[in-house]
């Protein structure tokens, strides 16, 4: 019996497969592309080619494309999944999870392994991965390159919260001959400030802050996030798969419950 979690986000689709001992035996990430239905089908093929028989597994889908996975036994929201995933990855039952996703940024408060409260960005892409992507594009960088460059920059700020206006600010900074690392610094500051203001809406509590989602391997983002939140921020390369891992764990609970019946 396998437990599979599929997290179809706005930018990337993630897969996590666990065995009966809740060991992560397969993980995979691919761009979501324009059709989440096609993406779900391609993930299906990948699992098949790796010998994972869906007849012999329980599958839970999450993420904004969760309804596009026809072979899922159940759908659960990404908030619950990121919470569960972070608990598993970091073995921390109480703390805060920050997930900077493609179109949504979520801040989740965990207590005893359960989601206690959460906030998400509203109809605005400030402080999301998309914001970073757009700015990186306009500077001919990848998001990872931008984050790496930001560490050596300083002295510049971007004031627009709106991605479209912020992009024209970046373009005029480029036109003015501002150094690339300084602009990168300003972009990173803008994202982290927005995330921190979102996090401040949740009551502070005990435990560490775990960074999950696509930016979890970005050391610089993690560092300044910690400085601004005045606490340590932990991250793991598996953080990118937190949603999918949480979905796989939900599949395990669901499978056990069904079997119990």
């Amino acid at each position: 019996m396998y437990f599979t979690g599929i997290d179809i986000g706005s930018t990337c689709a993630k897969l996590a497969v666990m065995d009966e001992e809740k060991r992560l035996i397969l993980k995979h990430v691919q761009p979501t592309g324009w059709s989440s239905v096609d993406t779900a089908a391609s993930i299906y093929d990948r699992m098949k080619s790796r010998g994972i028989d869906l007849e012999e597994s329980v599958c839970v889908a999450t993420g904004y494309g969760r309804i596009s996975v026809p072979y899922a036994d159940k759908t659960v929201t990404e908030i619950t999944c990121h919470g569960k995933g972070a608990v598993w990855i970091h073995d921390c039952k109480t703390g805060m999870v920050i997930d900077i996703g493609g179109q949504d940024t979520k801040v989740i408060r965990l207590e005893n392994g359960q989601v206690k409260d959460f906030v998400m960005n509203d109809k605005c892409s400030a402080g999301t991965g998309r914001f970073l992507e757009v700015m990186a594009n306009s500077m001919a960088l990848s998001p990872d390159q931008l984050c790496a460059l930001a560490a050596s920059g300083g002295g510049v700020t971007i004031s627009s919260m709106c991605t479209v206006f912020a992009e024209s600010e970046v373009i005029s900074l480029i036109g003015r001959g501002e150094k690339r690392e300084n602009i990168a610094y300003a972009v990173a500051e803008s994202i982290v400030n927005k995330v921190v203001s979102l996090a401040s809406r949740l009551s502070t509590g005990e435990g560490p802050v775990c960074l999950t989602g696509g930016l979890c391997e970005c050391d610089y983002i993690r560092k300044i996030l910690g400085e601004k939140l005045r606490c340590g921020v932990i991250a793991s390369p598996e953080g990118r798969y937190a949603g999918a891992i949480g979905a796989a764990l939900t599949a395990a609970e669901y499978g056990m419950r069904k079997r119990g019946k």
Binding site: I79, T80, D104, D117, F118, M120, D122
Partner: peptide, 12 residues
Amino acid sequence: QLNTRIAAFLEM
């Protein structure tokens, strides 16, 4: 978005 937020709240 509303469905995701409210569903997550109910799951909680």
